[in-house]
Design a protein around this nucleic acid. Structure first.
Lengths: 232, 232
DNA sequence: CCGGATCCGGTTAGATACTG
DNA sequence: CAGTATCTAACCGGATCCGG
């Protein structure tokens, strides 16, 4: 049931027994970001096998980090939510991410691009404040990708909620953004700016000029984008 | 050579590939605490196999966290030192330890007592300021333990350096501290005070009264002792 | 002693398929 | 939707051995 212990009384070792098993901190990042249902977590951690996800969720429950509960609005579905101990891990995960942004080589990780992860992250962190108070639709087009991953729609509703579609919702589009996945990921990670990508013609914007001008702001960016990068 | 990747561009996942393999953060804690030679690291992480220690040190070098260098004073021996990227992990390890102290159950970890780890940690963090400016010798006695682990001597030299012996150095002893390993570990971890242990007769102090009175101060305590504990 | 390398058996993780 | 089942590959722990 439980993992082999380090047999040390040091709190670092005690915590590492809970946190430092394969996939665990990536799963915790997803829980902290707000995912709670099993298949929602699977989408955020797509390369983790469901068997291991289930096992890790059980271990995190045993450790008091996660609690399983029934959704009030859908009693047949259960949700995994962080306990106070789990929410208290946010500084730990943030410190790990800040260190990763600063010191881990970018090149290998930029070979691991994933449009679905990127678009869901963008949806999550989108800053609606500079977006006009009507329904705004932004279509992202990655011409390099296969049909099924080529077109994505971000929709900001008048109530400021944000939706992501990967099938055409049929609305009029306010802004088209045509680019490649690497460029868009670099912008999201804070490694280059919207302006730079447009000037070098790696990003083509067509549509409402107010959305074009404010894109660097409403895009929100990764929580780690402000951390300077120092890796060689 | 390198571990299987999570295939995510998120900095948390990138960092976790480096940090969250078995034993790695415990090893980093030891490096941050100041150990640098292979067998010095082995002493601090005694249950890690030398093969795995060697492998992890190689991976940390590849990741740019550790650099291997020759000791100037002993050219046949090499040392593993943290790079700037490695020293930058200190906030990460501290955050992990603080979380562990606050949220991980104490009971199971207090079954993993180790007098050598405890005494070396005490040596490392001893606060010499309240100790008289002459050679002071403090002998710790754990009557419960087998002969080889029963008696330990902490020696504070006039130049404020601290030594640990587990064979009798032959000096006059200024203070005898007779206790059990669990009590001493609890004091070290900040879970109980010297005063409480003395009053409940779990710790017997005999010798120089100034060292007795200032013990709570010169003991220094674990870097995580100030963190409140909230685990159930 | 120091700094590992080698071998072997048990455990863990990944891939894929399947079920209530 | 929310997981199991199964099989194989990779990893880990423990012991032993080896060259300086």
């Amino acid at each position: 049931m439980t993992n082999a212990s380090y047999k040390q009384f040091c709190p670092v070792a005690m915590a590492a027994e809970v946190l430092c098993t394969r996939w665990t901190v990536v799963l915790l990042r997803e829980l902290i970001a707000g995912s709670s249902r099993f298949n929602e977590l699977r989408r955020g951690v797509p390369r983790m096998s469901p068997a291991l996800l289930s096992k890790r969720l059980g271990e995190l429950q045993d450790a008091g980090v996660v609690a399983r509960e029934r959704l009030a609005e859908a009693p047949e579905i259960d949700a995994y939510r962080l306990t106070q101990a789990g929410r208290d891990l946010q500084p730990v995960i943030e410190a790990i991410g800040m260190w990763g942004q600063k010191w881990v080589e970018t090149e290998p990780s930029l070979e691991n691009l994933d449009p679905e992860l990127l678009m869901w992250d963008m949806r999550r962190n989108l800053d609606t404040r500079p977006v006009p108070r009507r329904r705004c639709v932004i279509e992202f087009i990655y011409p390099e990708l296969p049909e099924a991953q080529r077109r994505w729609w971000l929709i900001v509703e008048p109530d400021r909620s944000v939706d992501l579609c990967h099938i055409d919702p049929g609305f009029d589009v306010d802004l088209y953004a045509t680019t490649d996945l690497r460029t868009m990921t670099e912008i999201w990670m804070g490694l280059r700016s919207v302006r730079d990508a447009v000037e070098r013609e790696a990003l083509l914007l067509v549509g409402a000029s107010e959305l074009m001008r404010s894109m660097q702001t409403w895009l929100g960016l990764s929580p780690f984008a402000r951390q300077e990068k120092l890796a060689r």
